[in-house]
Amino acid sequence: MTVMTEELKPAMQGYIPAVLATCSKDGEPNATIVSQVVWVDDEHVALSFQFFNKTIRNVRENPYASVLITHPSTLECWSLDLRYDHSETEGPLFDAMDMQLQAIASMTGMADVFKLKASDVYFVEAVTHRGRYFEPLPEGGS
């Protein structure tokens, strides 16, 4: 059984955006930035579905995806092999994500733009430590 460890949680705080890669049924890849990967439990993560874009289309055709997350302090990276499981349009997970989105959107005048259609839940099939792609700034640097 694959489980995600607590050390991954800071990488899901949204400090550093994640990179999500999907692929169409025809094998055409697509990569995009997502602001936050939501920890659901130690086997699942969720992504917000706000717009019917290429990512959503791909995932609905081909459930496999990969997301790269980065620890904000150490800049350690992990890739999560994901399999789209289901979408939630109600319930605690959807409410939590929807409320957060509405709170942020209403503060920034974007309430009519940011609307959560669903919480897409993915099963985490594998977690791979990728090391650092960037070196942290030296102490006192900017």
């Binding site: 059984m1 694959t2 489980v3 995600m4 460890t5 991954l8 992990w78 977690v127 791979t128 430590h129």
Partner: peptide
């Protein structure tokens, strides 16, 4: 560079 971190206990 890659190493599994998933745990099975």
């Amino acid at each position: 560079m890659t190493e599994p971190v998933a745990q099975e206990t």
